[in-house]
Design a protein around this nucleic acid. Structure first.
Length: 434
RNA sequence: GGAGAGAUGGCCGAGUCGGCUGAAGGCGCUCGCCUGCUAAGCGAGUGUAGGGUGUAAAGCUCUACCGAGGGUUCGAAUCCCUCUCUCUCCGCCA
């Protein structure tokens, strides 16, 4: 979020920016409200000043046991007027705030122009697609035949876009979570966090999901005064850990990693990815979050991307990296890289991680600041996050890339210690487990 | 769920029957002085946000903020109401 002063001085630049993002946003309403607010403030401060001065005077008279009722009478009207003005100002400010919260972030200068997904340039490619001497199957077929994924019963229990993992399927998911967390915490210096899976409205606003994207979230009612939102990503609770706080010198950078389930309404994606694990209302993800000093944030973004890529490299999964163009980049992000893993069953690259630098956009909303040196003025941190990785989609990638002719699936070397040394998932081994 | 206690500046902590308290005092921190190092000592300073003035920095000045919101009043950290959070005890519970 930008502060009102910045918006006031950059009306045109912001409107142009929103157009480049493909969602033109007029600030006429803001300009009008901002002017009104300025008048109200001036008037309010004048009156308040008068009240303060006269009240002091009355106090003085009282202490000296002198008459003051005349002044008091006079102030009654003034006092009434200020009440009205204050009320008006609160309304105007709320309207301004509402607008400010809906202005998206500026894409970084290095972000390419584009209208949508198809304009995202490829940055790099790693590895190569596996070759099969048989037609590779989709993960839903593999998973059902091995009886490790049960889509029917998932749907029975909860509905479409919910899946039941069974036996070695559940085990493989858990192995992936542990493997990812171990790499990030032991080798990359991230601190492990297990956050609340539901958060309040303020937290959702801090990272930018609210107010604009409420329809994408699951809402949980506690009572008529309070409700929660299921987190759509660990980014939300983890980035907000230091909201409303000032980090003292030496505390940055902060690196967090967190496993959480993620909950998404997927409103507006009817008919998309209806089969399989790709698009679920609930899925697991290991997230990486960084709070850093502004001057390092782009360097940190590259490293964050590298940390996410490293998981795929160790799993020996072929992938490519694209930069999201102005038309495809998220609301809060300045720059985003998507990592897309190769899925032979779909003959396509699919997003498995999204790594973004938000610069100070989220930090402003959540008020996350740091003191560069002792005694210095607090500054906003830069926040970054990336999936490291989306666990369900990683499992999909393993099933499709490691599938064998006989319908079994090899287990990547690095995961075997997490699978009791198991090298392959075959139908017998899974039935035994259930 | 029931009963009680509390929430003040970076920290600790005082605020009397509402007025001279943006807030005593202490600690910490910063700068300066002093002492052959260190420690101690002395002096000054030390919140955040917004507005006005200023070419800008500094400065000056105004407004708001003593958990949050509302009320009473000429005037509220101080009185009243609601809420949130923390702590103690009882009950219940994975």
């Amino acid at each position: 979020m930008f502060d009102a002063k910045f918006v006031r001085n950059n009306i045109e630049a912001i409107e142009q920016m929103t157009a480049r993002r493909g969602e033109p946003f007029s600030l006429d309403g803001f300009v009008q409200l901002d002017e009104e607010n300025s008048h109200l403030r001036t008037r309010l401060e004048e009156i308040q000043h008068k009240i303060n001065v006269v009240s002091k005077k009355i106090g003085q008279l009282k202490r000296e046991n002198k008459e003051s009722s005349l002044l008091q009478e006079e102030m009654k009207d003034v006092s009434a007027e200020i009440k009205e003005l204050k009320k008006k100002k609160v309304e105007v400010e709320a309207s301004i705030q509402e607008i400010l919260l809906r202005i998206p972030n500026f894409p970084h200068a290095s972000v390419p122009e584009g209208k949508g997904e198809e304009d995202n340039p490829e940055v790099k490619r790693w590895g190569r697609p596996p070759e099969f001497d048989f037609p590779p199957q989709a993960h839903w077929d593999i998973g059902e035949k091995l009886d490790i994924l049960d889509f029917k019963r998932g749907a029975k229990l909860a509905g479409a876009r919910f899946t039941l993992y069974k036996g070695l399927g559940a085990r493989l998911e858990r192995a992936l979570i542990n493997f990812m967390l171990d790499v990030h915490t032991r080798e990359k210096g991230y601190q492990e966090i297990l956050p609340p899976f539901m958060v309040n409205r303020a937290t959702m606003t801090g990272t930018g999901q609210l107010p604009k994207f409420e329809e994408d979230l699951f809402r949980v009612f506690k009572d008529e005064n309070e409700d929660f939102f299921l987190i759509p990503t660990a980014e939300v609770p983890v980035t907000n850990i230091y909201s409303q706080e000032i980090l003292e010198p030496g505390r940055l950078p902060v690196y967090f990693t967190a496993y959480t389930p993620c909950f998404r309404r997927e409103a507006g994606s009817y008919g998309k990815d209806t089969r399989g694990l790709i698009r679920q209302h609930q899925f697991n993800k290991v997230e990486l979050v960084k709070l850093v000093e502004p001057e390092n944030s782009y360097q940190e973004l590259e490293r964050l991307l590298g940390d996410a890529e490293d998981i795929l490299k160790r799993l020996d999964l072929h992938y490519r990296v694209v930069t999201l163009c102005t038309g495809d980049i998220g609301f809060a992000a300045s720059k985003t890289y998507d990592i897309e893993v190769w899925l032979p069953g779909q003959n396509a690259y699919r997003e498995i991680s999204s790594c973004s630098n938000f610069e100070d956009f989220q930090a402003r909303r959540a008020s996350i600041r740091y003191r560069p040196v002792s005694g210095a003025k607090p500054e906003f941190v830069h926040t970054l996050n990336g999936s490291g990785l989306a666990v369900g989609r990683t499992l999909v990638a393993i099933l499709e890339n490691y599938q064998l002719k006989d319908g079994s699936v090899a287990i990547p070397e690095v995961l075997r210690p997490y699978m009791n040394g198991l090298e392959r998932i075959e139908s017998e081994s899974s039935t035994r487990a259930v």
